[in-house]
């Protein structure tokens, strides 16, 4: 099984790069995964990643994109609660890329 290597620690991931053990996640690892996704993490990226982690902590699932948009709108306002905004941050799909960086499993229903 493939793995991320960081500061001498091995973090196993599946064939698509999703972390095998969510409890291994840390911010430094997130930066590394983001780099693999060709994303430079900004405070705006972190806002989404942290939001996803909180959502997962509470409900044990990664939200579907439209649920994420709605919840972001509620928490951060109209500008940030839009598909456009999230796709600008995560061009290959906020659900897929942001979840991967957040250390969450692949969202339900994602093929």
């Amino acid at each position: 099984m493939a793995a991320y290597e960081l500061n001498g620690t091995t973090y196993e991931h599946d064939e698509e790069g999703y972390l095998t053990d969510i409890s291994q996640w840390n911010p430094e690892l997130a930066e590394l995964i983001a780099k693999d996704e060709k994303i430079e993490m900004t405070p705006e990226h972190w806002e989404v990643v942290n939001f996803l982690r909180e959502y997962y902590e509470e409900y044990q699932i990664a939200p579907a994109i439209r649920v994420l948009v709605k919840a972001m709108k509620k928490k951060f306002g109209k500008e940030k609660g839009s598909n456009k905004y999230l796709y600008e941050l995560f061009p290959y799909g906020p659900a897929k890329q942001a979840c991967k960086i957040a250390g969450l499993p692949k969202p339900t229903g994602c093929v």
Binding site: E58, Y59, Q60, P63, V67, A71
Partner: peptide, 14 residues
């Protein structure tokens, strides 16, 4: 096993 009961509380979002 994973406790998936918290997920029922997310159904309202869906």
């Amino acid at each position: 096993m994973k406790n998936f009961s918290p997920t029922y509380r997310a159904l309202g979002d869906y």
